[in-house]
Design a protein around this nucleic acid. Structure first.
Lengths: 203, 203
DNA sequence: CGCGCTTTGTACCGATCGTTCCAGCCTATA
DNA sequence: TATAGGCTGGAACGATCGGTACAAAGCGCG
Protein backbone atom coordinates (compact mmCIF):
# COMPACT_ATOMS: atom_id res chain seq x y z
CA UNK A 1 0.00 0.00 0.00
CA UNK A 2 2.04 3.01 -1.25
CA UNK A 3 1.42 6.12 0.82
CA UNK A 4 0.74 8.68 -1.88
CA UNK A 5 2.03 12.22 -1.57
CA UNK A 6 2.26 14.97 -4.14
CA UNK A 7 5.95 15.26 -3.24
CA UNK A 8 7.14 11.81 -4.36
CA UNK A 9 6.23 12.40 -7.97
CA UNK A 10 9.76 11.55 -9.16
CA UNK A 11 9.34 7.97 -8.00
CA UNK A 12 6.22 7.42 -10.11
CA UNK A 13 5.82 6.69 -13.77
CA UNK A 14 5.28 9.45 -16.34
CA UNK A 15 1.56 8.90 -16.76
CA UNK A 16 1.05 9.24 -13.06
CA UNK A 17 3.12 12.44 -12.99
CA UNK A 18 1.23 13.96 -15.88
CA UNK A 19 -2.05 13.23 -14.13
CA UNK A 20 -0.78 14.83 -10.94
CA UNK A 21 0.34 17.95 -12.80
CA UNK A 22 -3.10 18.28 -14.35
CA UNK A 23 -4.66 17.98 -10.90
CA UNK A 24 -2.31 20.63 -9.52
CA UNK A 25 -3.16 23.04 -12.32
CA UNK A 26 -6.89 22.51 -12.12
CA UNK A 27 -6.90 22.78 -8.34
CA UNK A 28 -4.82 25.95 -8.44
CA UNK A 29 -7.55 27.55 -10.53
CA UNK A 30 -10.22 26.56 -8.02
CA UNK A 31 -8.15 27.71 -5.02
CA UNK A 32 -7.41 31.01 -6.72
CA UNK A 33 -11.10 31.63 -7.29
CA UNK A 34 -12.50 30.65 -3.91
CA UNK A 35 -9.59 30.40 -1.52
CA UNK A 36 -7.92 27.33 -0.08
CA UNK A 37 -9.93 26.88 3.09
CA UNK A 38 -13.17 27.80 1.36
CA UNK A 39 -12.71 24.98 -1.14
CA UNK A 40 -13.83 21.53 -0.05
CA UNK A 41 -12.39 18.24 -1.14
CA UNK A 42 -15.67 17.50 -2.90
CA UNK A 43 -15.28 20.59 -5.06
CA UNK A 44 -11.78 19.50 -6.00
CA UNK A 45 -13.13 16.08 -6.93
CA UNK A 46 -15.76 17.64 -9.14
CA UNK A 47 -13.32 20.06 -10.77
CA UNK A 48 -10.89 17.25 -11.51
CA UNK A 49 -13.62 14.79 -12.40
CA UNK A 50 -12.38 12.25 -9.89
CA UNK A 51 -13.73 10.46 -6.85
CA UNK A 52 -12.29 11.00 -3.41
CA UNK A 53 -10.28 7.81 -3.52
CA UNK A 54 -8.71 8.68 -6.85
CA UNK A 55 -7.91 12.23 -5.80
CA UNK A 56 -6.25 11.16 -2.56
CA UNK A 57 -4.33 8.54 -4.48
CA UNK A 58 -2.49 11.43 -6.13
CA UNK A 59 -2.37 14.25 -3.64
CA UNK A 60 -1.88 12.52 -0.29
CA UNK A 61 -3.55 15.37 1.53
CA UNK A 62 -5.11 18.73 0.87
CA UNK A 63 -2.10 20.50 2.31
CA UNK A 64 0.20 18.36 0.17
CA UNK A 65 -1.64 19.67 -2.86
CA UNK A 66 -1.21 23.23 -1.62
CA UNK A 67 2.51 22.63 -1.14
CA UNK A 68 2.77 21.25 -4.67
CA UNK A 69 1.24 24.45 -6.04
CA UNK A 70 3.76 26.49 -4.08
CA UNK A 71 6.61 24.36 -5.35
CA UNK A 72 5.53 24.83 -8.92
CA UNK A 73 5.75 28.59 -8.56
CA UNK A 74 9.01 28.57 -6.64
CA UNK A 75 10.60 26.19 -9.14
CA UNK A 76 9.86 28.57 -11.97
CA UNK A 77 10.91 31.66 -10.05
CA UNK A 78 14.21 30.14 -8.97
CA UNK A 79 14.93 28.89 -12.48
CA UNK A 80 14.40 32.43 -13.75
CA UNK A 81 16.76 33.82 -11.13
CA UNK A 82 19.32 31.20 -12.10
CA UNK A 83 19.12 32.19 -15.78
CA UNK A 84 19.72 35.80 -14.81
CA UNK A 85 22.75 34.88 -12.72
CA UNK A 86 24.14 32.84 -15.61
CA UNK A 87 23.61 35.69 -18.06
CA UNK A 88 25.69 38.12 -16.01
CA UNK A 89 25.80 41.83 -16.81
CA UNK A 90 25.74 45.07 -14.85
CA UNK A 91 23.54 45.40 -11.75
CA UNK A 92 20.96 47.52 -13.59
CA UNK A 93 20.82 44.94 -16.38
CA UNK A 94 20.52 42.14 -13.83
CA UNK A 95 17.67 43.89 -12.07
CA UNK A 96 15.79 44.41 -15.31
CA UNK A 97 16.22 40.75 -16.22
CA UNK A 98 14.99 39.67 -12.80
CA UNK A 99 11.87 41.74 -13.37
CA UNK A 100 11.34 40.22 -16.80
CA UNK A 101 11.60 36.71 -15.43
CA UNK A 102 9.41 37.32 -12.38
CA UNK A 103 6.62 38.97 -14.32
CA UNK A 104 6.82 36.19 -16.88
CA UNK A 105 6.11 33.62 -14.18
CA UNK A 106 3.24 35.69 -12.76
CA UNK A 107 1.81 36.05 -16.25
CA UNK A 108 2.11 32.37 -17.12
CA UNK A 109 0.91 30.99 -13.78
CA UNK A 110 -1.62 33.53 -12.53
CA UNK A 111 -3.61 31.01 -10.53
CA UNK A 112 -0.61 29.33 -8.92
CA UNK A 113 0.87 32.69 -8.02
CA UNK A 114 -2.39 33.89 -6.54
CA UNK A 115 -2.53 30.82 -4.33
CA UNK A 116 1.12 31.22 -3.45
CA UNK A 117 0.73 34.83 -2.35
CA UNK A 118 -2.58 34.35 -0.54
CA UNK A 119 -2.42 30.95 1.08
CA UNK A 120 1.16 30.44 2.14
CA UNK A 121 0.16 30.88 5.81
CA UNK A 122 -1.91 27.71 5.46
CA UNK A 123 1.25 25.64 5.13
CA UNK A 124 2.30 24.15 8.45
CA UNK A 125 5.32 22.57 10.07
CA UNK A 126 8.08 21.34 7.86
CA UNK A 127 6.38 22.43 4.65
CA UNK A 128 6.04 25.99 5.92
CA UNK A 129 9.69 26.09 6.90
CA UNK A 130 10.88 24.75 3.54
CA UNK A 131 8.78 27.29 1.72
CA UNK A 132 10.02 30.22 3.81
CA UNK A 133 13.59 29.20 3.13
CA UNK A 134 13.13 29.13 -0.63
CA UNK A 135 11.31 32.43 -0.64
CA UNK A 136 14.11 34.01 1.35
CA UNK A 137 16.67 32.62 -1.07
CA UNK A 138 15.00 34.49 -3.89
CA UNK A 139 14.66 37.71 -1.95
CA UNK A 140 18.34 37.56 -1.02
CA UNK A 141 19.20 37.44 -4.73
CA UNK A 142 17.38 40.70 -5.29
CA UNK A 143 19.12 42.29 -2.33
CA UNK A 144 22.46 41.05 -3.63
CA UNK A 145 21.96 42.74 -6.99
CA UNK A 146 21.08 45.99 -5.25
CA UNK A 147 24.13 45.74 -3.00
CA UNK A 148 26.33 45.08 -5.99
CA UNK A 149 24.89 48.12 -7.73
CA UNK A 150 25.67 50.33 -4.78
CA UNK A 151 29.24 49.04 -4.63
CA UNK A 152 29.74 49.48 -8.36
CA UNK A 153 28.39 53.01 -8.17
CA UNK A 154 25.50 52.30 -10.53
CA UNK A 155 23.02 52.81 -7.71
CA UNK A 156 23.12 55.51 -5.09
CA UNK A 157 23.48 54.70 -1.41
CA UNK A 158 20.35 52.89 -0.26
CA UNK A 159 19.14 50.26 2.17
CA UNK A 160 19.28 47.03 0.11
CA UNK A 161 16.76 45.24 2.28
CA UNK A 162 14.19 48.02 2.16
CA UNK A 163 14.75 48.69 -1.52
CA UNK A 164 14.33 45.00 -2.30
CA UNK A 165 10.96 45.12 -0.51
CA UNK A 166 9.92 48.04 -2.72
CA UNK A 167 10.96 46.15 -5.84
CA UNK A 168 9.30 42.90 -4.75
CA UNK A 169 6.07 44.67 -3.88
CA UNK A 170 5.93 46.52 -7.15
CA UNK A 171 6.36 43.31 -9.12
CA UNK A 172 4.57 40.72 -6.99
CA UNK A 173 1.48 42.88 -6.65
CA UNK A 174 0.79 42.52 -10.36
CA UNK A 175 -0.71 39.12 -9.54
CA UNK A 176 -3.99 40.96 -9.00
CA UNK A 177 -4.45 41.90 -12.63
CA UNK A 178 -1.66 40.52 -14.85
CA UNK A 179 -3.18 37.55 -16.67
CA UNK A 180 -2.91 35.91 -20.08
CA UNK A 181 -5.33 37.67 -22.39
CA UNK A 182 -4.85 40.98 -20.61
CA UNK A 183 -4.10 43.93 -22.86
CA UNK A 184 -0.59 44.05 -21.42
CA UNK A 185 1.99 41.28 -21.78
CA UNK A 186 4.60 40.53 -19.14
CA UNK A 187 7.18 42.49 -21.10
CA UNK A 188 4.78 45.42 -21.55
CA UNK A 189 4.78 45.71 -17.79
CA UNK A 190 8.36 44.77 -17.03
CA UNK A 191 9.86 47.50 -19.21
CA UNK A 192 8.05 50.49 -17.67
CA UNK A 193 8.57 49.03 -14.19
CA UNK A 194 12.30 48.71 -14.80
CA UNK A 195 12.37 52.26 -16.17
CA UNK A 196 10.77 53.60 -13.02
CA UNK A 197 12.74 51.56 -10.54
CA UNK A 198 16.20 51.81 -12.04
CA UNK A 199 15.91 55.52 -12.71
CA UNK A 200 14.65 55.85 -9.15
CA UNK A 201 17.70 54.28 -7.57
CA UNK A 202 20.54 55.12 -9.92
CA UNK A 203 23.31 57.53 -9.07
CA UNK B 1 -36.06 41.68 18.42
CA UNK B 2 -33.45 43.89 16.76
CA UNK B 3 -31.57 42.07 14.04
CA UNK B 4 -27.99 42.88 14.94
CA UNK B 5 -25.46 43.71 12.27
CA UNK B 6 -22.00 45.15 12.53
CA UNK B 7 -23.13 47.81 10.05
CA UNK B 8 -25.83 49.51 12.13
CA UNK B 9 -23.43 50.66 14.82
CA UNK B 10 -24.53 54.29 14.48
CA UNK B 11 -27.98 53.43 15.76
CA UNK B 12 -26.65 51.90 18.97
CA UNK B 13 -25.45 53.50 22.16
CA UNK B 14 -21.78 54.31 22.76
CA UNK B 15 -21.08 51.39 25.06
CA UNK B 16 -22.39 48.98 22.45
CA UNK B 17 -20.26 50.61 19.78
CA UNK B 18 -17.13 50.44 21.91
CA UNK B 19 -17.74 46.75 22.54
CA UNK B 20 -18.18 46.12 18.83
CA UNK B 21 -14.97 47.96 18.00
CA UNK B 22 -13.09 45.85 20.50
CA UNK B 23 -14.54 42.71 18.93
CA UNK B 24 -13.53 43.91 15.46
CA UNK B 25 -9.96 44.60 16.55
CA UNK B 26 -9.56 41.33 18.41
CA UNK B 27 -11.07 39.33 15.57
CA UNK B 28 -8.88 41.07 13.02
CA UNK B 29 -5.85 39.81 14.91
CA UNK B 30 -7.16 36.25 14.87
CA UNK B 31 -8.11 36.41 11.18
CA UNK B 32 -4.71 37.84 10.30
CA UNK B 33 -2.97 35.00 12.08
CA UNK B 34 -4.98 32.06 10.81
CA UNK B 35 -7.07 33.26 7.92
CA UNK B 36 -10.77 34.01 7.75
CA UNK B 37 -12.10 30.64 6.63
CA UNK B 38 -9.67 28.78 8.88
CA UNK B 39 -11.04 30.57 11.94
CA UNK B 40 -14.21 29.14 13.48
CA UNK B 41 -16.88 31.03 15.34
CA UNK B 42 -15.88 29.20 18.50
CA UNK B 43 -12.35 30.53 18.23
CA UNK B 44 -13.69 34.04 17.88
CA UNK B 45 -15.82 33.49 20.95
CA UNK B 46 -12.83 32.37 22.93
CA UNK B 47 -10.61 35.21 21.68
CA UNK B 48 -13.28 37.75 22.58
CA UNK B 49 -14.25 35.95 25.79
CA UNK B 50 -17.89 35.78 24.76
CA UNK B 51 -20.46 33.08 24.14
CA UNK B 52 -21.98 32.55 20.72
CA UNK B 53 -25.16 34.37 21.64
CA UNK B 54 -23.28 37.44 22.82
CA UNK B 55 -20.96 37.46 19.82
CA UNK B 56 -23.78 37.19 17.32
CA UNK B 57 -25.61 39.90 19.17
CA UNK B 58 -22.86 42.24 17.96
CA UNK B 59 -21.65 40.95 14.65
CA UNK B 60 -24.79 39.66 12.94
CA UNK B 61 -22.77 37.18 10.91
CA UNK B 62 -19.21 36.11 10.35
CA UNK B 63 -19.16 37.87 6.99
CA UNK B 64 -20.60 41.01 8.59
CA UNK B 65 -17.61 41.01 10.90
CA UNK B 66 -15.28 40.62 7.94
CA UNK B 67 -16.96 43.53 6.20
CA UNK B 68 -16.58 45.67 9.32
CA UNK B 69 -12.84 45.00 9.31
CA UNK B 70 -12.68 46.04 5.66
CA UNK B 71 -14.64 49.19 6.39
CA UNK B 72 -12.32 50.15 9.19
CA UNK B 73 -9.35 50.06 6.83
CA UNK B 74 -11.10 51.81 3.96
CA UNK B 75 -12.40 54.54 6.28
CA UNK B 76 -8.87 55.34 7.38
CA UNK B 77 -7.42 55.14 3.88
CA UNK B 78 -10.07 57.41 2.39
CA UNK B 79 -9.70 59.90 5.22
CA UNK B 80 -5.97 60.04 4.50
CA UNK B 81 -6.61 60.63 0.82
CA UNK B 82 -9.06 63.38 1.73
CA UNK B 83 -6.49 65.12 3.90
CA UNK B 84 -4.03 65.03 1.01
CA UNK B 85 -6.57 66.51 -1.38
CA UNK B 86 -7.34 69.29 1.13
CA UNK B 87 -3.66 70.05 1.60
CA UNK B 88 -3.10 70.68 -2.10
CA UNK B 89 0.39 71.07 -3.56
CA UNK B 90 2.26 69.92 -6.65
CA UNK B 91 1.70 66.41 -8.02
CA UNK B 92 5.02 65.14 -6.65
CA UNK B 93 4.15 66.54 -3.23
CA UNK B 94 0.69 65.02 -3.42
CA UNK B 95 2.11 61.64 -4.28
CA UNK B 96 4.54 61.74 -1.39
CA UNK B 97 1.75 62.69 1.00
CA UNK B 98 -0.43 59.84 -0.29
CA UNK B 99 2.40 57.45 0.45
CA UNK B 100 2.84 58.85 3.95
CA UNK B 101 -0.84 58.44 4.70
CA UNK B 102 -1.14 54.96 3.23
CA UNK B 103 1.88 53.58 5.03
CA UNK B 104 0.66 55.17 8.22
CA UNK B 105 -2.58 53.20 7.99
CA UNK B 106 -0.73 49.98 7.20
CA UNK B 107 1.55 50.59 10.13
CA UNK B 108 -1.24 51.40 12.59
CA UNK B 109 -3.64 48.64 11.50
CA UNK B 110 -1.40 45.77 10.43
CA UNK B 111 -3.95 43.08 11.26
CA UNK B 112 -6.90 44.82 9.63
CA UNK B 113 -4.85 45.51 6.52
CA UNK B 114 -3.65 41.93 6.34
CA UNK B 115 -7.24 40.73 6.46
CA UNK B 116 -8.27 43.36 3.93
CA UNK B 117 -5.60 42.35 1.42
CA UNK B 118 -5.97 38.60 1.89
CA UNK B 119 -9.65 37.96 2.49
CA UNK B 120 -11.51 40.45 0.34
CA UNK B 121 -12.56 37.65 -2.05
CA UNK B 122 -14.55 36.17 0.83
CA UNK B 123 -16.98 39.08 0.69
CA UNK B 124 -20.06 38.26 -1.35
CA UNK B 125 -22.92 40.00 -3.07
CA UNK B 126 -23.67 43.55 -2.11
CA UNK B 127 -20.82 43.77 0.39
CA UNK B 128 -18.29 42.72 -2.24
CA UNK B 129 -19.63 45.30 -4.68
CA UNK B 130 -19.53 48.11 -2.13
CA UNK B 131 -15.97 47.22 -1.20
CA UNK B 132 -14.79 47.09 -4.81
CA UNK B 133 -16.28 50.52 -5.45
CA UNK B 134 -14.48 52.11 -2.51
CA UNK B 135 -11.21 50.48 -3.40
CA UNK B 136 -11.52 51.78 -6.96
CA UNK B 137 -12.25 55.26 -5.69
CA UNK B 138 -8.93 55.28 -3.89
CA UNK B 139 -7.00 53.88 -6.83
CA UNK B 140 -8.52 56.52 -9.09
CA UNK B 141 -7.15 59.22 -6.81
CA UNK B 142 -3.64 57.88 -7.29
CA UNK B 143 -4.13 57.75 -11.04
CA UNK B 144 -5.46 61.31 -11.00
CA UNK B 145 -2.35 62.61 -9.27
CA UNK B 146 -0.16 60.87 -11.82
CA UNK B 147 -2.20 62.25 -14.70
CA UNK B 148 -1.98 65.74 -13.24
CA UNK B 149 1.78 65.37 -12.96
CA UNK B 150 2.08 64.40 -16.60
CA UNK B 151 -0.02 67.38 -17.67
CA UNK B 152 1.95 69.77 -15.46
CA UNK B 153 5.21 68.44 -16.84
CA UNK B 154 6.46 67.24 -13.45
CA UNK B 155 6.24 63.64 -14.60
CA UNK B 156 7.31 62.27 -17.94
CA UNK B 157 4.81 60.65 -20.30
CA UNK B 158 3.57 57.44 -18.70
CA UNK B 159 0.56 55.18 -18.47
CA UNK B 160 -1.28 56.50 -15.38
CA UNK B 161 -3.12 53.24 -14.81
CA UNK B 162 -0.04 51.05 -15.01
CA UNK B 163 2.08 53.46 -13.02
CA UNK B 164 -0.57 53.62 -10.31
CA UNK B 165 -0.40 49.80 -10.08
CA UNK B 166 3.35 50.02 -9.58
CA UNK B 167 2.92 52.61 -6.84
CA UNK B 168 0.11 50.71 -5.13
CA UNK B 169 2.05 47.45 -5.20
CA UNK B 170 5.17 49.02 -3.78
CA UNK B 171 3.23 50.50 -0.88
CA UNK B 172 0.54 47.90 -0.19
CA UNK B 173 3.02 45.06 -0.16
CA UNK B 174 4.60 46.46 3.00
CA UNK B 175 1.74 44.84 4.90
CA UNK B 176 3.91 41.73 5.06
CA UNK B 177 6.50 43.23 7.35
CA UNK B 178 5.62 46.80 8.38
CA UNK B 179 4.34 46.56 11.97
CA UNK B 180 4.45 48.61 15.15
CA UNK B 181 7.66 47.76 16.95
CA UNK B 182 9.50 47.14 13.69
CA UNK B 183 12.84 48.90 13.39
CA UNK B 184 11.35 51.11 10.69
CA UNK B 185 8.50 53.55 11.24
CA UNK B 186 5.96 54.38 8.56
CA UNK B 187 7.85 57.57 7.72
CA UNK B 188 11.17 55.70 7.59
CA UNK B 189 9.69 53.69 4.76
CA UNK B 190 7.58 56.36 3.08
CA UNK B 191 10.50 58.72 2.47
CA UNK B 192 12.81 56.29 0.63
CA UNK B 193 9.84 54.92 -1.31
CA UNK B 194 8.86 58.41 -2.42
CA UNK B 195 12.47 59.10 -3.39
CA UNK B 196 12.59 56.05 -5.58
CA UNK B 197 9.21 56.45 -7.17
CA UNK B 198 9.18 60.18 -7.82
CA UNK B 199 12.72 60.19 -9.20
CA UNK B 200 11.69 57.24 -11.33
CA UNK B 201 8.84 59.02 -13.02
CA UNK B 202 9.88 62.65 -13.10
CA UNK B 203 10.76 64.46 -16.25
C1' DC C 1 -38.11 46.90 45.04
C1' DG C 2 -39.97 45.83 40.30
C1' DC C 3 -40.53 46.71 35.45
C1' DG C 4 -38.68 46.35 30.56
C1' DC C 5 -35.03 46.04 27.58
C1' DT C 6 -30.40 44.59 26.53
C1' DT C 7 -26.94 41.29 26.97
C1' DT C 8 -25.42 36.66 27.66
C1' DG C 9 -24.60 31.35 27.93
C1' DT C 10 -26.00 27.01 26.32
C1' DA C 11 -28.08 23.48 23.88
C1' DC C 12 -28.90 22.26 19.44
C1' DC C 13 -29.61 22.33 14.24
C1' DG C 14 -28.50 20.29 9.57
C1' DA C 15 -24.66 20.52 6.66
C1' DT C 16 -20.16 19.91 5.49
C1' DC C 17 -15.38 19.31 6.75
C1' DG C 18 -10.84 16.28 5.57
C1' DT C 19 -9.75 11.69 5.70
C1' DT C 20 -9.93 6.58 5.68
C1' DC C 21 -11.28 2.32 3.98
C1' DC C 22 -12.39 -1.17 0.92
C1' DA C 23 -14.31 -3.83 -2.78
C1' DG C 24 -14.08 -4.03 -7.43
C1' DC C 25 -12.59 -2.22 -12.02
C1' DC C 26 -9.09 -1.52 -15.50
C1' DT C 27 -4.90 -2.48 -17.71
C1' DA C 28 -0.33 -4.23 -18.58
C1' DT C 29 2.40 -8.17 -18.83
C1' DA C 30 3.21 -13.00 -19.53
C1' DT D 1 -6.54 -15.76 -20.94
C1' DA D 2 -4.80 -15.61 -16.21
C1' DT D 3 -2.92 -12.76 -12.74
C1' DA D 4 -1.22 -8.89 -10.21
C1' DG D 5 -1.33 -4.26 -8.93
C1' DG D 6 -2.28 0.41 -9.95
C1' DC D 7 -6.44 2.99 -10.00
C1' DT D 8 -11.19 4.30 -8.86
C1' DG D 9 -15.86 5.48 -6.79
C1' DG D 10 -18.50 5.75 -2.93
C1' DA D 11 -19.86 4.78 1.72
C1' DA D 12 -18.82 6.02 6.24
C1' DC D 13 -16.01 8.29 10.03
C1' DG D 14 -15.96 11.65 13.96
C1' DA D 15 -15.35 16.43 14.21
C1' DT D 16 -16.51 20.80 13.40
C1' DC D 17 -18.79 24.20 10.61
C1' DG D 18 -21.93 28.81 10.78
C1' DG D 19 -26.13 29.94 12.66
C1' DT D 20 -30.56 29.82 15.63
C1' DA D 21 -33.63 29.43 19.71
C1' DC D 22 -34.55 30.52 24.05
C1' DA D 23 -34.49 31.44 28.74
C1' DA D 24 -32.00 33.42 32.44
C1' DA D 25 -29.08 37.05 34.04
C1' DG D 26 -27.73 41.94 34.13
C1' DC D 27 -28.99 46.61 34.07
C1' DG D 28 -30.96 51.45 34.15
C1' DC D 29 -34.71 53.83 35.78
C1' DG D 30 -39.04 54.62 38.39
Amino acid sequence: MPRADARDAPRRNPKWQARLEAIIDTSARVFARQGYHATGINELCEANDLGKGALYHYIGSKEGLLAAIHDRVMDEVMQGAERVAQAGGSPPAQLEMLGDELLDVIHRYPDHVWVFLHEFPALTGERAAAFRTRRQQYERRVEAVLRAGVESGDFRALDPWLTARAWLGMHNYTYLWLKPGHRLSARDVAKPFADIFIRGIQN
